[in-house]
């Protein structure tokens, strides 16, 4: 991406919904058409702002789930029944509707195709969204960086981007999925939570000096980061994006605390 795209001050702009499709249980993928979009880096997010007729505004942050090469900017939105934004985005929005957003945001939690060190991605739940962008960009850019994804989801129906992840696995990306609550018959992946031992076994070894991106709920990412440090990884090599703990998040808050 051109550096200038980060340099200018961001303003709110309109995006047109090109598609709103179910992606996993209670999760939708919103594909947006944005005029004048200068591209983005995998890992960046956008802020979405909804305005009620009385002027009340609610703002939320969503990671971009599509690669810069994609014709649309895609967001993965998990519906939380007591959320004030996500039920509208998943169930209320139709193709042709317009949304107000600001972005792309963030230059810290990103991956660039010119990075050639081994890359380790660790995701919990909808925290996989930015990594779908990373993996698609890795493929499109023909990157030679070895990549592993360790992804924790509740059940197979909760796995986001399942088909795409399968395709990435077929081109040599290490994709390991751990299902925490329920496994289908004959499940060949991992079962249960990402314990320190699972992390040590399935993450690139520390002596290969991988760069590591971790995204998920606050409790998840902090437990993973602790395990990574225990396994010998340097704290500075670990980049984290927390999106709060869903149960503890404020229901009616207008601040972009979580992906509700």
């Amino acid at each position: 991406m051109a550096r200038t795209a980060i340099r200018r001050r961001l303003t709110w702009r309109l995006a047109t919904v090109a598609a709103n499709a179910s992606e996993a249980r209670a999760v939708h993928r919103l594909s947006l058409q944005i005029d004048g979009w200068d591209g983005h880096l995998p890992g960046q997010h956008v802020d979405v702002r909804l305005t009620a007729p009385d002027g009340y505004q609610a703002q939320r942050s969503y990671s971009i789930a599509s690669a810069p090469e994609s014709p649309t900017v895609d967001l993965v939105v998990q519906r939380l029944d007591d959320g004030e934004v996500s039920p509208y985005l998943t169930d209320g929005v139709r193709a042709g509707d317009q949304l107000e957003l600001r972005g792309p945001i963030g230059g810290y939690f990103v991956w660039r195709a010119e990075f050639d060190s081994p890359l380790q991605l660790v995701a919990g739940g909808s925290g996989v969204a930015p990594f779908l962008a990373v993996l698609d960009h890795h493929a499109a850019a023909g990157s030679g960086a070895p990549v592993r994804l360790l992804y924790s989801a509740r059940s197979i129906d909760d796995v986001i981007g399942r088909e795409r992840l399968q395709q990435h696995a077929e081109r040599g990306i290490g994709v390991t999925i751990a299902l925490t609550r329920e496994q289908p018959p004959g499940w060949a992946g991992l079962s249960g939570r990402l314990t320190p031992r699972v992390i040590r076994e399935h993450v690139w070894p520390a002596d290969g000096r991988p760069s590591i991106l971790v995204c998920g709920s606050t409790t998840f990412v902090e437990a993973v980061a602790d395990s990574l440090v225990e396994a010998g990884h340097e704290a500075a090599a670990i980049r984290i994006e927390r999106f709060g703990d869903v149960k503890g998040a404020r229901r009616d808050s207008g601040v972009p605390t979580t992906r509700r």
Binding site: L10, H45, D47, Q59, S61, R102, G103, I105, G106, Y108, F109, T218, T219, E222, I240, E241, R242, F243, G244, D245, K247, G248, P256, T257
Partner: peptide, 13 residues
């Protein structure tokens, strides 16, 4: 601890 976010959440503001 469970309310904690990181600098990424302040970036838009």
């Amino acid at each position: 601890e469970s309310r904690r976010l990181d600098g990424n959440a302040a970036a838009g503001r």
